[in-house]
């Protein structure tokens, strides 16, 4: 939850005082594009594409469950000032984003406006349901919204976002275009490297805490055999875990995955019972010491996965 990329120009002393006062009243709209990022991964993507042209407010951290955020005063104040609100969309923030938008009364970022950018809605999503019933748990009719761990979808989103940035801030249109080109080149090279590294992961199986890993595992060719949550959004319970333990006896998975914001106990319990390694993945930027930007998020995630199967191969 920090502001980045804001650079204060050198000012004369008298202007500095006035500037300081203005700064308090409103972090200047003229200095940089004001971006409100619902999740750290989108803040990181803005950092890649806009660098110091944007000042990003991170609404959540990797330690928070974004399904459960409240529309608290500080967030309302930040949306009020935003030129761009970037979120996952596809109903991930359904409990708080619509309320923030209404309370903030900011015409630039209302649904349908240029300042409203829903990343997951720029790409095709997996698990779009023709019918949804709440007895299925907290399933999103619009499909799984956790798209940021698929590098190909990320590249598409980066393209759309660069175009959007150029529309909102035309004076820097060329800059955003160049940044996106450079990002795409580096990202494609990274994908090659990652896919090479990830070869040993292909065909492995995993138990997941929640369906956060849908796109990552789909990309890496890892099969999800079970979830610790009995239904999406419902916390793991003893009966369900006991059943999973039985299932692991007949068909053991290679690893148990959870995000840094999820409770440790269910996956540790199953790991102790079954001997399958339980690993914590960063999930998003800031979710581990290693995951400091989008590139290192993927590096670190792969490292953890490879360590896990290395560990299980030794057994």
């Amino acid at each position: 939850m920090a502001r980045t990329g804001f650079k204060m120009r050198t000012l004369h002393f008298s202007h500095a005082i006035l500037g300081g006062m203005l700064l308090w009243v409103s972090i200047p709209a003229h200095a940089a594009l004001q971006v409100f990022a619902c999740e750290p991964e989108w803040a990181a993507l803005i950092d890649e594409l806009a660098a110091d042209k944007a000042s990003v407010y991170r609404a959540t951290t990797a330690q928070q469950d974004v399904h459960r955020i409240q529309a608290r005063p500080s967030l309302i104040a930040q949306v009020r000032k935003a030129d761009l609100v970037i979120c996952s969309g596809a109903e991930l923030e359904v409990g708080w984003l619509p309320l923030l938008l209404r309370r903030a009364a900011n015409p630039k970022v209302q649904p349908g406006k240029m300042g409203y950018f829903m990343a997951a809605e720029q790409v095709e999503r997996l698990d779009v349901h023709a019918t949804v019933d709440r007895s299925m748990g907290d399933v999103h009719a619009a499909g799984n919204p956790h798209v940021h761990l698929d590098p190909y979808r990320m590249m598409t989103i980066a393209q759309s976002l660069a175009k959007r940035l150029a529309t909102i801030d035309p004076s820097n249109a060329d800059f955003y275009h160049d940044q996106q080109q450079q990002f795409a080149t580096r990202w494609q090279a990274a994908i090659k490297k990652w896919e090479q590294l990830a070869l040993p992961l292909q065909g492995k199986t995993a138990v997941v805490h929640h369906k956060d890993w849908r796109y990552l595992l789909n990309w890496l060719g890892i099969t999800t055999v079970a979830s610790l949550e009995p239904k999406p959004g419902l916390p793991p319970n003893a009966n369900h875990l006991a059943r999973l333990n039985q299932q692991m006896k007949t068909a053991p998975a290679a690893m148990i995955l959870r995000a840094s914001y999820q409770a440790a106990r269910p996956s540790q319990w199953l790991a102790n019972k079954s001997g399958i390694p339980a690993i914590v993945l960063p999930y998003t930027v800031g979710g581990s010491d290693g995951a400091q930007d989008l590139f290192s998020l993927y590096d670190d995630t792969l490292q953890h996965l490879l360590n896990a199967i290395g560990a299980s191969d030794l057994k």
């Binding site: 359904v94 619509p98 649904p111 829903m118 809605e121 023709a130 949804v132 009719a141 619009a142």
Partner: peptide, 13 residues
């Protein structure tokens, strides 16, 4: 309850 797939939270139409 049946919902038609939509990309918008509360079914804008």
């Amino acid at each position: 309850m049946t919902l038609i797939p939509t990309t918008h939270a509360s079914n804008e139409m």
